[in-house]
Design a binder for these strands. Structure first.
Length: 494
RNA sequence: GGUCCCUUCGACUAACAGGUAAGGUCACCGCAUUUUCAAUGCGGCAAUGCCGGGUUCGAAUCCCGCAGGGAUCACCA
């Protein structure tokens, strides 16, 4: 049933459109998780707005009721918040055009479709829904018989209750040129464009149509989205022209790939943002790394805070070709972020991971964290690095053999035999005193420090690779436990 | 298949109003340092898809061809 067109209503809507130099929107579908490509789009969209002191809007695209996922919208809020991507308008913030949830705007779309029909840029199609994709192709290519129905005839059939869809009337002649901020001018023959459906049989708008209306009504100046929409962009242009609206700037971003051929995807088991966090990556590192997947600030700096990115971000620095996600480089970024944290901040985030392996509260988590900070790449690798504090692992005497320090079982035994009484006699148990005992011994015996340190560390930790050296490990273990472990080593060495 | 887009080291990329020994970072390899492993410092490896054509004194950069890859062609979003 066609709705009455009231010019005043449209004028009113136009008057309510917020104006701003730069207004961008991130428009995710609530799927329940934020994949890396999405996160990057959100970041770039936010950056474009913030760089220009503009407005950033969060809009939830929930037109598809069938795909609704419980709690999915909360995942979006939570992720955006954690990442520092604050929005000025959104479902939870309100705003001049109120509903930022698409379903709540439903009544609007039909009116705009009617407007387009009245101007001849769209038409009603009463044909049966195509059985196959090949069949639908003919309609789409402008060969739909309903395209040539007179307005009166179409009105009559609609009034009589016959179901229909609204299709966009693409001119058969000419070409459409549209401009993308990243890809430049792209021109296509109109004859290759299809008469896409704008309003579905059930009265709901298609995604493509809803988008155009929403973006316009929200005063969006830069439409940032994935490059999969590049080929439908010319049709968008025609829609804007049909309405007589100003065309926004388009920023189409190439996808983030898992390898040469495939996009990153949940299906292939690629990590989402929340997966990465669960794997021990820091939010700041993820954001920083993801920003560089397809954007170059030009200079040689790679580590950027969100504030710095905001300052340096330029659309012209976004690259056209897809970027492959490299977890190794993310690891490096993460390690770099960890190293530059304030020690107390690192201790705070590391403590839960330390306590997974070190239950004994006598061992100070902050002290262990201090050893860990310089050699941790991702948080989840912490437990296995520090488990030896709690329980001395089973180890082989072979560990005492070490080429670089010229250590072997025999020399180790000699060192430990000398060190045990020296440790026992120590008045104070701290880094300095422990170190002194060992360097003194090395000096007396005229050997390298390493030759003394090596067996002590192995005996204390029971493993070759440890965070921190012999001194720190002995200090944290405490004198009693250290001596116990050194004696165990002596037994092993016979 | 039609249409559109893309193409610099293994990866992310810089250099693009034509003139570079094609730069940086990760990874990898080596050396130094160290109390193991790291971290750090220094050094190395390694690219313009095409021994295709053209323009030019000069091409990664501009044009054409070829090849490869991607996207799209839904009453999904």
């Amino acid at each position: 049933m066609p709705e009455k067109l009231e010019q005043a209503w449209f004028d009113e809507m136009e008057a309510r459109i917020p104006k701003g130099k730069v207004r961008t929107r991130f428009a995710p579908s609530p799927t329940g998780y934020m994949h890396v490509g999405n996160l990057r789009t959100a970041l770039y969209t936010w950056l474009i707005a913030r760089h220009a002191d503009g407005t950033f809007i969060l809009r939830i695209e929930d037109t598809d009721q069938g795909r609704l996922v419980e709690g999915a919208v909360d995942v979006i809020y939570k992720t955006m918040k954690e990442c520092g991507l604050d929005h000025d308008e959104g479902p939870d913030v309100g705003g001049p055009v109120a509903p930022y949830i698409q379903t709540e705007r439903r009544p609007l779309y039909g009116k705009y479709a009617e407007l387009l029909i009245s101007r001849g840029h769209a038409y009603r199609c009463f044909c049966e829904k195509a059985e196959s994709e090949e069949d639908s192709g003919d309609f789409n290519r402008g060969e739909d018989p309903c395209r040539s129905l007179t307005q009166e005839e179409a009105d009559r059939r609609a009034d009589s209750g016959e179901p229909f869809v609204v299709r966009q009337r693409i001119p058969h002649e000419g070409e459409t040129v549209f401009h993308d901020e990243i890809f430049g001018d792209i021109r296509v023959e109109n004859s290759t464009l299809d008469d896409q459906v704008l309003m579905k049989r059930d009265g709901l708008p298609t995604y493509n149509f809803a988008n155009v209306i929403d973006d316009h009504l929200m005063g969006i100046t830069h439409v940032v989205r994935g490059s999969e929409y590049l080929s439908s962009a010319p049709k968008y242009n025609l829609l804007y022209e049909g309405f007589g609206w100003e065309i926004p700037k388009y920023v189409h971003c190439s996808p983030v790939m898992r390898d040469q051929h495939n996009k990153m995807s949940k299906r292939h088991g690629d990590p989402s943002y929340e997966d990465l966090i669960a794997q021990g990556y820091l939010t700041d590192a993820v954001i920083n790394y993801v920003a560089l997947l397809g954007w170059s600030p030009g200079g040689e700096q790679e580590i950027f805070s969100l504030d710095e990115m905001k300052e340096f971000f330029e659309i012209s620095g976004i690259s056209k070709s897809p970027a492959i996600f490299d977890i190794e480089k993310l690891r490096y970024f993460n390690a770099s972020y960890i190293r530059s944290m304030a020690p107390e901040d690192f201790a705070r985030v590391a403590e839960p991971y330390i306590r997974r392996a070190v239950k004994n509260e006598a061992y100070d988590a902050a002290a262990i964290a201090a050893l860990l900070q310089q050699r941790t790449e991702i948080l989840t690798e912490i437990p296995e690095k520090v488990d030896f504090f709690d329980v001395l692992p089973e180890y082989d005497v072979e560990l005492f053999t070490h080429k670089k320090s010229k250590s072997d079982a025999e020399s180790s035994r000699a060192v430990l035999q000398a060190i045990v009484p020296a440790f026992e006699a120590l008045p104070e148990w701290n880094d300095e005193s422990i170190l002194n005992v060992m360097t003194k011994l090395a000096e007396d015996w005229e050997v390298k420090n390493a030759k003394v340190m090596w067996p002590v560390r192995i005996a204390a930790a029971g493993k070759a690779v440890t965070p921190g050296g012999a001194v720190e490990i002995c200090r944290i273990l405490g004198r009693e436990e250290t001596l116990r472990r050194l004696r165990i080593a002596l037994e092993k060495l016979g």
